[in-house]
Nucleic acid binder design. Structure first.
Lengths: 155, 155
DNA sequence: GTAATTGCAAATTCTTTGCACGGTC
DNA sequence: GACCGTGCAAAGAATTTGCAATTAC
């Protein structure tokens, strides 16, 4: 675990861009680090931060998330549920990881490995498009739901 | 061009699900067909429909878009600009087409061919996830912007 | 010291809902 | 005549903004 080192690194990134590391920003970042597998919305982050630092305002959380997105420390994603969610970018990850969204239970799984290396090459060559990043989400049925379904049919 | 046949087919789909093809729904669908390369927001669709049928209300457009999404005639997409956009599903397309979003000029190009056939197989095998559909958007620089950039450097 | 940052409340933006009215089979 | 669909206006949800007070460096 290196929440410490991640925090330190972020602090530096903030300073490099002329931002200050305020307690509010630190608290927000900590929540993001502690929940890196989740895909929290601004409001969810706000409530989690509020638990430890009750004086924080929702607007500050929004403003912090905006800065962190700008610095590419987090990514803003949207899974068609109409609100923005925030996802910590993995240390040194060149590309955004992929998501598996279960249409049945709504769970979001993460796929760390980059499955698009070849596809991106095709896009660059065939469509003359210089790929910088991507957003890929598969919609489908997760293993757990598929098994549940199977069991129900057997019964 | 077969806006006629597309309309006819949709009419049937609506009827099969117990909906009527009202003039408002027809006008909305027509705008979608006429702008199938665009990625219009609800409001943009509303204004285009209003040109021809000034009596239509925004709420009706939203309600129509909801029905069309439900019937999988259109797809609701979001490109991180915070509002929903709607995209006509291609005739008989099993999978949602891909998008190329230019980070410079904001243009969205479409990629009709399915580049994910093999990747989906990997996901199914390696992650035990039954893929039903996907959302894939590449972020990068389009050909036009890349050339403009090059020209500026030469000058 | 001072420019950046904050919390709060008000404002905006996008979308949904309630409801009386109109159209259709 | 029951029912679906509509327009309008009001409500709602998510996010942004203005501003005076506060804080980090």
């Amino acid at each position: 675990m290196n929440a410490m080192s991640a925090m330190k690194k972020t602090k530096q990134q903030l300073h490099e861009s002329g931002f200050k590391l305020t307690p509010q920003r630190e608290a927000t970042l900590l929540v993001l680090l502690e929940n890196e597998k989740e895909h929290l919305s601004a409001e969810e982050i706000f409530f989690l931060v509020k638990k430890k630092s009750p004086e924080i305002g929702l607007a500050t959380v929004y403003r912090t998330l905006e800065i962190l997105t700008e610095l590419k420390i987090i990514d803003k994603v949207s899974f068609n549920d109409g609100l923005a969610r925030y996802d910590l970018r993995k240390e040194g990850a060149k590309h955004f990881h992929h998501h598996l969204l279960c249409l049945n239970c709504g769970t979001i799984e993460e796929v760390e490995e980059d499955l698009l290396v070849e596809v991106e090459q095709v896009v660059e060559e065939r469509y003359h498009f210089l790929v910088k990043d991507h957003r890929l989400t598969f919609h489908g049925i997760c293993q757990e739901c598929a098994e549940k379904e199977k069991r129900n049919k057997t019964v």
